[in-house]
Every structure is written in C-alpha cells, then in structure tokens.
Design a protein around this nucleic acid. Structure first.
Lengths: 205, 205
DNA sequence: CATTGTGAACGGGTTCACAGCA
DNA sequence: TGCTGTGAACCCGTTCACAATG
C-alpha cells in the first residue's frame, strides 16, 4: 500500500460495512454503488471512489458481491479478527456498555472492566467482575489489550487515559465530555450526546 | 442572517461552547483563538473564521471574553433556553440516558420516557415513569416536544422514528445502528460505538 | 445494458498573511 | 505589541462524465 488513505475515507468504511452486513442478513448477494448510496445518504460516485482506493471489488454491469466486499472491508479495517477491549468506569453508562451485545460479529469484544469505587470492585456486571483501577495498567498490558472505552466522569478521564497509554493502549473511545491529551500514536474518538444534540438545536426555530 | 452557515461549522460550535464552559468553571475570564485551538486540536485561524461568521466577538490584542462568547454561542445554538426531549427505549442504554445528569446546563432536559415492553411500562427509571409507546405520538405532540433520543433495537428504530415524526419531532439522536428514513425537515444524528471503534482498528497493526 | 473505475473539473473548506485596532 | 477579522491563495474532497467491461 503505497498511498496514504485520507482519514475521512477510513471513517466511512465502517458505515459501508455495517450496511453490507445488514444486506447479507437479509439474504442479499449483490448490490450496487447506487443502492449503497441511497441507504447511506452518500453519492454513488463517492462510494465507488472510496472503495477503489483499496482495490477493484466490483464488476461492471453487475455491481458488488456482498460477501466478497464484506470480506475485503473487514480485512482493511482489521476486524477479520477479534479485538479485546477494556472498559473503565462502571457507572450507568459503563454498565450498559459492559452488557452490550452489539460488539460481537464486528470484531470487538469487551474483555475486562475496571472501576475505582470500592463498593463496585468485586461486583458482577454482565459477564464481568469489576476490577480495581489500581491494577488497570498491569492487567491491560499483560493481556496485550490495545483498545479502551472510557466512561468515567470528566474529572477522572485524563488520568485514566494516562494509565491506559502507559499500559500500551493505542485506541480510546472516550465518553467523557472533554478532550484528552495522548501521544500522537494513540487514536481517540469521542462520543458525547450533548454535542450531537446541540448541533441539531441550531436548526430548530 | 443573510448567509447560509455550512453544516460543518455548526458541528464545531458545540465543541467550542463545551470548552468555553469548562474554562469558565475554572474561573477564567478571557481566552484566545490560539488557546481554544490547542485545547481542541483545531487551528486558530479556523476558530476565528468560524466565529466571525456570526459576528465580531473578540477584541484585537485581548482575545475573547469567555462569558460573552458563551452567551453568544448559546444564542446561536438556541440553547439559551431548555429543550424538552423524549427518550424511546428503556434497555440498558436507555436506562443510563434517563439517569444522565449531563444534559442540564446545556439547554437540554429529558422530559418523558417510553417503552413497549409491558414489564417495563409503569416502572420507575430515574425520575421518570416508563410510559407505553402506544401513547407516544399523542403525548409527545401534546407536550410540543421537538427532540427525541432512540435507544430501541435496530429492528424497531424505523417504526419508532415514524411515530416521532408524526408527533412533530424535528431532531432525532439515534443510537440504533441503522440509517433511518425521515422527511427532509427532520434532523438525525447517529451514535454507534462500533463505527468509532472500527475507524480506529484500521490504524492498529 | 447496467455498472464499475477513474481522470478531470469543480467546489468548498482550510490555511495564509496581513491590515486594523485595542 | 498582541490578537482579531478577513480577503486571497491553496488544497483537498466531491462530483462529473465517460471509457471499459462483464
């Protein structure tokens, strides 16, 4: 792979993959850039151009084989394997994520959960026993975990992130409503409902 | 307001507002485009240009008054009031959102919650009694609610969205991992952790 | 004949650089 | 002097349009 893929394209690939998997579940075998575009609200030309960055997956006149395209996208995104993840912060949201069933079949698996509240440590949540955050760095490094989800309060998020980086984590999904500082080789994504909601209130009278 | 503001700029405003509010809590009175940029990972020029779309909020040599800029951004985003929201789907995630304390102080308030599971209807979750989805459209319209959060399974999301649209909702935050179809005057935002995570696995060896 | 893959054209978002002002 | 606001330049992502092809 000589060429650098723009991040904005990478960001669309999981969406393509998700729609394709749903189509596969519906029993579909082939699709076209046009149909994908309609389902996603993206132009057909854009989808073709995005996919063509990684190879020639389609056939003229026929379109794309859904299983074949899924297979290739999973390989591109490195989800043709299972990534263990660590969850830090077992409040209401952490609780929900710990029990979430939607990661399997997408190359992701919650492997361990941590909290620093003595009342929570040792308790069972979903299929997990809440472990002590004090042991986070050691346990995470030992397990070779590279992906983390942070659901602690904003005030604790940066120090948790520091621990995770120390433990060798390279990708963080942060639910705390702050920007965290990490080394350039660590990727961070944010999920904050307030941001999304305020983006929409702009358009409300 | 003669000019149309690009959506990509609108999408950044809530992030500016969030950082400014945190600065205000820290007791700060003024800031600069450079400092904002460093905190957010955005160039100073971009922040100045974004803000200048809406007026001249800064002072040369001094920077921006934090309270003044907050006030203006809140007005622009229409969060200088409180928007009632409806939550549909009281699973683990809905449960967490119903109890979430992070909406207040941001112009947002969960006002009612619904589910179609007879075992959940009538139960108390947070400060709410779970109401029957069958009454959703009527209750939501009567309350004049314009914003909804959907936390039902993917298979139910579209029909819930249809009900919400019927009830006059104009903004939907969808946690179900599918694209929903709505009229062009209804805004939709999606939150799906799998999308964010797979975007990062691309960069992992 | 439908649909892909892609070079070229286009458009718009970002950065630059500096005048203007406290 | 320090920092904003902004026109101009630049760059990059998107769309267009069509040759290629099963």
């Amino acid at each position: 792979m000589a060429k650098e893929i723009p991040d904005i394209i990478v960001g669309r690939l999981p969406r393509y993959l998700g729609v394709l998997k749903r189509m596969a579940q519906e029993g579909r075998q082939t699709t076209s850039s046009q149909e994908l575009g309609e389902r996603l609200g993206i132009s057909a030309a854009q989808i073709r151009k995005d996919l063509s960055q990684f190879g020639e997956f389609g056939k003229q006149g026929t379109g794309y084989s859904i299983p074949y395209l899924i297979e290739n996208l999973e390989a591109i995104l490195h989800v043709n394997r299972v990534w263990d993840m660590v969850l830090v912060g077992v409040g209401d949201l952490g609780h929900a994520i710990a029990r979430y069933q939607g990661f399997s079949d997408h190359g992701l698996r919650t492997a361990m959960i941590f909290d620093n509240d003595p009342k929570k440590i040792g308790q069972r949540v979903g299929n997990f026993i809440v472990q002590d955050s004090a042991e986070l760095a050691e346990k995470v490094r030992q397990a070779g975990i590279k992906i983390a989800m942070i659901t602690v309060p904003a005030s604790a998020a940066q120090s948790v992130a520091n621990e995770l980086v120390k433990a060798g984590v390279k990708a963080i999904l942060c639910y705390a409503p702050i920007v965290i500082n990490v080394p350039p080789d660590v990727h961070v994504q944010y999920i904050d409902p307030v941001i999304h909601l305020q983006r929409m209130t702009y358009y409300l009278s």
